[in-house]
């Protein structure tokens, strides 16, 4: 099936199988491998991207459902070589170790702050419920998100 998707500001036209998931389309068709696959039950959140500005687990969506949509992946977050404030904050606050959950974490938390620019710790932690990290105990992820919120987001 033919689809037209705007991915990281670039118009894409592709012919995909009906069963292709959005995450596989992004990774295998477009070569955007920054988006990760960490489970097969939509628990881990490593595949989180933005669809029309909202966070979405790209394993829960067929590529054909993205037809006509704007998709942003981790590769599209930095602008003109400048890191997004959330990327910078994860770096500054040691919000990552192995880095596998990190793209999903960053996409989720940027969307979280778009919805709620001034979350308290509890709200940040609840906002991260759909993303699993096995390295950090979430401590520094929460700190990284709070730091961006405190600085006034993006």
């Amino acid at each position: 099936m033919k689809i037209s998707v705007n991915v990281n500001g670039s118009a894409q036209e592709n012919d995909v199988e009906a069963r292709t998931l959005l995450v596989n389309y992004l990774r295998d068709e477009l070569g955007l491998t920054g988006t990760k696959i960490g489970c097969d039950t939509s628990q881990c959140g490593a595949c989180t991207v933005h669809m029309d500005g909202k966070a979405l687990k790209s394993c829960t969506c067929l590529a054909v459902q993205a037809d006509g949509c704007d998709i942003t992946t981790i590769e599209g977050l930095a602008q003109n070589g400048d890191l997004h404030p959330m990327q910078q904050s994860f770096w500054d606050n040691h919000g990552l170790q192995c880095g596998f959950c990190t793209p999903g974490m960053i996409m989720t938390t940027t969307a979280l702050l778009a919805d709620n620019p001034n979350p308290d710790e509890d709200e940040i932690r609840h906002g991260l419920e759909g993303n699993l990290c096995r390295c950090t105990g979430y401590h520094n992820i929460v700190k990284a998100v709070a730091a961006v919120a405190q600085a006034g987001g993006d």
Binding site: R27, L32, T33, G34, T35, K36, I37, T73, I74, E75, L77, A78, L83, Q87, F90, W91, D92, H94, L96, G99, F100, T102, P103, I106
Partner: peptide, 21 residues
């Protein structure tokens, strides 16, 4: 000192190559 990690730029931008990639 709490030096920021040298490995992080590739990890926070999605550039790192894991096995599946």
């Amino acid at each position: 000192k709490a030096v920021k990690r040298k490995e992080d730029p590739r990890l926070i931008t999605g550039e790192a190559r894991y096995l599946e990639d």
